[in-house]
Design a protein around this nucleic acid. Sequence first.
DNA 1: GTGCACAGATTTGTATACAATAAGAGGCAT
DNA 2: ATGCCTCTTATTGTATACAAATCTGTGCAC
Lengths: 236, 236
Amino acid sequence: MTSTAGRPNFIQPGAGGPTAQLVASLSLAIHEHRLRPGTKLGEDELGEIYKVSRTVVRSALQALSHSELVELKRNRGAFVSQPTVREARQVFEARALLEPRTARSAAERMTDEALARMEAHIRSEHDAIAAGEAGKALRLSGQFHIEISHIADQAIIAGFIERLVARSSLIIALYWRRQSALCEEHAHHALVDAFRRRDGAEAEELMKSHLLDVVTALDLRDSPAPSVNLRDILQP
Amino acid sequence: MTSTAGRPNFIQPGAGGPTAQLVASLSLAIHEHRLRPGTKLGEDELGEIYKVSRTVVRSALQALSHSELVELKRNRGAFVSQPTVREARQVFEARALLEPRTARSAAERMTDEALARMEAHIRSEHDAIAAGEAGKALRLSGQFHIEISHIADQAIIAGFIERLVARSSLIIALYWRRQSALCEEHAHHALVDAFRRRDGAEAEELMKSHLLDVVTALDLRDSPAPSVNLRDILQP
DNA sequence: GTGCACAGATTTGTATACAATAAGAGGCAT
DNA sequence: ATGCCTCTTATTGTATACAAATCTGTGCAC
């Protein structure tokens, strides 16, 4: 598997520095629900897994805390964030405020290339679901919303939506009720149809009801259920 | 000036750790335009000024980069951000999207205590202007918008607005055209009047036109003008 | 048996030392 | 004189060492 035997590491030289790669790897794991909310992220533990020093681990954890995927408790350590019910509601209120309008913008500015990307994207989502890769499907589902915001060409708003989607992933991990991600797939398909027709009003409406669907599929009453181990999860 | 001679430091023990204090101090300096966009923030230099190790300086700079007040260039160092004209426009587009609605919410939820705080706040603004403390006045002016978002009781949106206000401060440093901050003062006064009457619609409208006023007072055509030294600026 | 207190071990926070990368000065060739 | 190259120097990136805080487990008192 390795050409130069003896370096089976995940952190490769180059590519923006080890910190960025660690952030990416951990983000991925969180978005795919391999790391559950509440999981403790010990510095030594991560350092040993990824074969990097605590310096870069700390740097990565700090970065993740600023994107609110990780909560840093002073002298206590880092934990995957556990959004409260209150925060969950506010996150989806914010999304309801930003995303429908953004979807409209995206539809109006839609180019052929961007449309092709979106179509390819929902195919990937479909494949992941078909292959039973729930984690990947979930991540792609979030990515779908981020893609839209980028097409809308409002970098600032896109950044906000990116944060909201990330937090939504944690919220779904904690509060998801239904099983089926099928509704998701249908909604995304309908949105791309609207994009294809450059129908801004329709896209706005579809996004609005899509977000509402997601919220109503959450159980925003009681509290979380935490914690697993690490080493097993972060291998591939 | 010092009771225990020999520690004229600005970083006191406690209070959330040295990093947080450094972040606060630098944020303040940036918001008050004592640190101008483009200024290089050398690690050794800051470490010596504040008598802390590079470890905490790096930590603080990373934090500031995540709030986009500082730009981190790999192997090059940290610089106070210089938003482009394009970014400036998008920041104010985002504010125009979020803040009027937030002002409405704030007006509708306004309590007597919150109202008293807002009134005290505009008095502080007035005093700062009267005393010729332009930097402080500017910072308070931004703080005014943040206060509103907190009253609206939407923590997530408030966080976004906080970031936008911070970035606006940099934009104003780079692209401000007019001299008078008097318009600001009047606009804020009118908003507080609307709050006093719990008039949501009026508050929304006032905020909308206030933001428009600010944008039109910017010169969003040409490019920046950078750089000064440090040591002098960061003393008090 | 239950609760508190102390001590050891573990983990995080901070400082320093070393390595790598990039900027700048000077010299050399053209 | 100008342009390119190399070497020096300064600054950032990473690793390690030490200090401080927290958690865990044991023992004792009640």
